[in-house]
Design a protein around this nucleic acid. Structure first.
Lengths: 225, 225
DNA sequence: TGGGAATTGTAATCTAGCCGACATTTTAAT
DNA sequence: ATTAAAATGTCGGCTAGATTACAATTCCCA
């Protein structure tokens, strides 16, 4: 793909703001690029060489499969987010794949080793990178403690609030979220069964606090959620 | 405290191995030092200036208190571990404190801003640091997924295995762990009620797989746990 | 334009483990 | 030694929510 386009893909990412033009060019050379359509599955497991990915466009979910074949949603990755071997340390064991949720996605990637070289030459970038990883850790910790102390209903509300804040379009008190998740997805994210999630969503819809369908979710009053 | 002693305290930490003598000296100058006895509580919340801590000796637990006054164990910090504002980003909100579990502890600390300066000048250190933070994230993620999919008994076993591996002294198949945790602590770590933890431990003791008291835990056969 | 697959709706069981309410034991402090 | 405070042991009731089991919808595409 065109080198210049690559450049522009990187330029508008917050992580790379601190880089000079020359440094950016260096990164572009080692960058990989990939597009995919809805429903496609992208493997990025240990079989391949370890990589760092940047999601340029769309949404994907990271799914882990355990020995028993149970699937857990590890993460929802949105435009601009990083994923992959964020710890800069390849771990062979984990069996994860990414599934495309939005209509299509665009993904940039670097080889882990290449990325390390660049970090070594750009201490500022290393610092920014650490902060991004740290932020991710903080978010994980947060949902972790929610899982411990809050019940399913509260967890659903917290998730909706978060989603609305990140992606919703607000009109007065009303918030509209483009819904690319199934109820099953939502259930997995808030760690409950599909049936419970369905029930809770229907309850909220009955009370008029919510309006759920496959295309969008309309929250009547975000402040009262 | 003596500058030379400081130097030796840092020198044997894996994070600082890559530094030159001069760089290490620089770190020593900005280093703080503190000792504390069992049961003491060390606050390191937002009230103070944000810091990074290195635990040189002993064990502490990080406890978070929520609005309702409920206490949750966030982390157990052992000799050589880092804690504090690991994300390099001060977050005002969280209300956490550290409690000394072992007889006494020694703690080094840096101001966050000083540490950032050092990282900027030592890309290698920044990389190592990111890896350590990443490893921590991976550990958190792991216990997180255990919490979701495993029942209390399995969680207890996993915790004991982990503890034994990290700190136990193995004699054949037998492993002896110095026990600085109460059953309540263990319960909080594996996210269950004190009563359930007590019951499970007693069950295991009845079966002869375990031997629990306040001083030590003896696991009869670690491979069969 | 049907028909199969995915998604959603609903209800009836069943159970792990939380919670309250103690009794008992151990530890630490005066 | 005495006593208060922690830490442990034990039990039964209770509930959130998993699980099983089907319908009913909606979507997709051949």
């Amino acid at each position: 793909m065109d080198e210049d386009l690559k450049y522009w893909y990187l330029r508008d990412h917050k992580l790379f703001r601190t880089l000079s033009f020359k440094q950016m060019k260096q990164l572009c050379i080692i960058m990989g690029f990939k597009e995919a359509k809805k429903g496609e599955i992208i493997y990025f497991s240990s079989s391949d060489v370890p990589r760092i990915f940047v999601l340029k466009k769309g949404n994907i979910k990271i799914v882990a499969v355990d020995e028993a074949g149970n699937e857990t949603i590890k993460d929802i990755i949105k435009k601009g987010d990083l994923f992959g071997e964020l710890t800069l340390e390849a771990d062979g064991e984990s069996n994860e794949y990414a599934k495309v949720l939005s209509d299509d996605v665009a993904i940039c990637s670097f080889l882990l080793s290449d990325f390390e070289d660049v970090l070594l030459k750009n201490p500022g970038l290393a610092l920014s990178y650490t902060k991004i990883v740290g932020l991710k850790m903080k978010r994980i910790k947060n949902s972790y403690s929610n899982l411990i102390s809050k019940d399913a209903k509260t967890r659903l509300v917290l998730f909706l609030k978060d989603w609305a804040e990140k992606e919703g379009t607000q009109i007065g008190k009303k918030v509209i979220i483009e819904n690319y998740l199934t109820q099953n997805d939502i259930a997995q994210i808030i760690c409950t069964s599909r049936q419970t999630a369905t029930q809770l969503l229907n309850e909220m819809e009955a009370k008029g606090t919510l309006l759920y369908n496959r295309k969008e979710i309309v929250i009547a009053d975000i402040t009262a959620l």
